[in-house]
Structure formats: structure tokens, C-alpha cells
Amino acid sequence: MQASNAAKFSAGSFLPVIEQCNGCERIVEVEGGRFCDTYMNPAAKWRLGICNFATHAKPEVKVVKIRVNPLKAAKRASRRK
């Protein structure tokens, strides 16, 4: 780690990582502290759900099957031709 990066983290502008950040590839250890290399306040990123910078957690994708009325589908298909 370069000295300029160490000064950035130790100056207090970056807050330490929280428990949900464990396992992320963006964590940097500087002078005995663990900080997020990308975001200054990791707790704020996890407040509304999953952090969009997290490399260890993937969002859940819900697949919802929509029922299509076959009569309406046939009418739409005949109009396109």
C-alpha cells in the first residue's frame, strides 16, 4: 500500500467496515484497521439492503410467471403481421 493511500484511510475520512462487509474483496487493511476501498461509510451502503459494491453477496432474483390470456395474445400476434 502506498503512503498516500495510508494517509487517506488514517486521516479519518473513511469509516471502518461493518460485519456484513466480511468476505468482500474491496476491504483494505491499513495500520491495523479494515476499510472499504470504494466507499467512505460502509454502514450507509448496507442500511437499505445489500451493498451494490459487495463482491461476496449477490442479490436475490425473483422470477414471477405472468399469466397471458391466449385470446389477447392471438389478437396481438395477428395485428403485427
Rank of each mutant, 00 (worst) to 15 (best):
W46N: 04
S13D: 12
P70L: 03
E60Y: 04
R76I: 05
C24F: 01
V68K: 06
N5S: 11
N41C: 07
L48P: 00
P59M: 08
H56M: 04
K81H: 04
A54N: 06
L48Q: 04
R76K: 03
A6F: 00
G33A: 09
R79C: 10
A43S: 11
R34N: 13
K62I: 13
K8P: 06
G33P: 06
G33N: 10
A77Q: 05
D37H: 08
P70D: 00
K65H: 05
C21P: 05
C24S: 06
A73W: 05
N22A: 11
P59T: 12
K45S: 15
Q2D: 12
E19P: 14
N69D: 15
C21R: 07
K72T: 10
I66Y: 01
R79M: 14
S4N: 13
V61K: 12
K65N: 05
C24A: 09
R67M: 10
R34Q: 13
S78D: 14
T55C: 06
R79L: 15
F14A: 05
T55I: 01
K62C: 02
Q20W: 01
R47E: 10
S13K: 09
Q2Y: 05
P42L: 02
I18M: 00
V17C: 08
C24Y: 05
A54Q: 02
R80K: 15
P70M: 03
R67A: 14
L48N: 06
L48F: 05
F35K: 09
L48W: 04
S10T: 15
V63Y: 11
S4D: 13
A73M: 06
K72E: 13
K58M: 12
I66N: 02
T38E: 09
I18G: 05
K8C: 13
K72M: 10
